[in-house]
């Protein structure tokens, strides 16, 4: 009996969401009186023994350049073998792009019930019940997993990373690495930008900004705060901003600590992607804009007048002027 956590990596570094998954898995291990182990696939440049800080006893590694691209079929087999070898009864993923590709396959392979999009620790007082997001953040479902092995994928930014003192044992896991049936011919990553799904602060603009030429009101503030940028759907549809910035019901769903919305009305389909943010700030000139109902802080005013002053104030706060 143990908890096994899949640590997702990109470019040789463990992702922030994977540390959340590690802490979450370690907390479940503690709750159920067992240990937490982790598995990392591909070539890693990080010090893996340091993962012990997140409550992980042992890290299983499969160093193989072929695993630097995630192939769900290949990864599923290796993780299933590792789960069997370690006797894992709970397996944790981050509910990010890779988690969504692998966890469902693993669920079938191990005949293990999956709850995707978990937002809290399971309730193990009577069965095994996991709280997850449903209706695009508008509600939660408490889902019982009724199989012997349980798989949970944790929503990013819903469990805090807490570190202690500890060192993990690092051991190579002897895995059969199959040839991938999917060939990756090209990858195109936006370099130097904070990925939207992992960002703690997101500055977002809507049609109220009138045109792409005014986007410095969004990007200047984002740069100052180390934030990612996002936009409403019409903004991406008209081509003012790239598609990957579109958040909402049909775009990306995010849950940053701060979501700062400028000139966005707050239509229900937009809110579906951002309503899990911890703090929401709305700048809109219309006091009736529905977004104010979902906001924590707001200014009823013209973004073109208000935003430059906000940017100045942040610079002052940061001691830049």
């Amino acid at each position: 009996m143990s908890v096994l956590i899949f640590l997702d990596q990109a470019d040789g570094h463990i992702k922030k969401s994977a540390f959340e998954a590690a802490c979450y898995g370690a907390a479940i291990a503690k709750q159920t009186g067992t240990i937490a182990e982790a598995i990392v696939l591909g070539s890693i440049n990080d010090d893996l023994a340091a993962i012990g800080q997140y409550g992980i006893t042992k890290v299983h590694t499969v160093k193989n350049d072929a695993l630097n691209h995630v192939d769900a079929q290949v990864f599923t087999k290796i993780i299933a073998d590792a789960a069997t070898a370690t006797g894992a009864t709970v397996i944790i993923f981050s509910n990010n792009f890779n988690g969504k590709a692998i966890a469902p396959r693993l669920s079938v392979r191990l005949k293990a019930g999956l709850v995707s999009g978990a937002v809290a620790l399971p309730d193990t007082s009577n069965g095994f019940i996991v709280k997850k997001n449903v209706f695009s953040g508008k509600a939660f479902a408490n889902v019982a997993i009724n199989t012997a092995i349980k798989i949970i994928s944790l929503n990013p930014n819903s469990f805090s990373v807490v570190t202690t003192i500890g060192t993990a044992e690092v051991a190579a896991f002897a895995a059969n690495v199959d040839a991938a049936k999917v060939t990756v011919t090209n990858t195109n990553k936006v370099v130097g930008e904070v990925p939207l799904s992992e960002a703690e602060i997101v500055i977002s603009g809507g049609r109220g900004l009138k045109g792409p030429e005014n986007w410095s009101l969004v990007t200047d503030l984002a740069k100052l705060l180390g934030a990612a940028t996002a936009c409403s759907r019409p903004v991406a549809d008209i081509g003012w901003r790239p598609h990957h910035e579109h958040v909402g019901q049909t775009g990306l769903a995010i849950a940053p600590n701060l979501y700062f919305a400028i000139g966005i009305s707050g239509a229900i389909q937009h809110l579906a992607g951002v309503n899990r943010s911890k703090t929401i700030v709305v700048i809109n000139k219309d006091p009736e804009a529905p977004f104010f109902k979902a906001a924590d802080y707001g200014i009823v005013g013209d973004a073109f007048e208000v935003m430059p002053k906000i940017i100045e104030a942040v610079k002052k706060m940061k001691g830049l002027i």
């Binding site: 990109a10 792009f97 990756v184 011919t185 990858t187 195109n188 990925p195 992992e198």
Partner: peptide, 8 residues
């Protein structure tokens, strides 16, 4: 994919 796209 996270932070971009991939051609398969």
């Amino acid at each position: 994919i996270e932070g971009g796209e991939e051609t398969d």
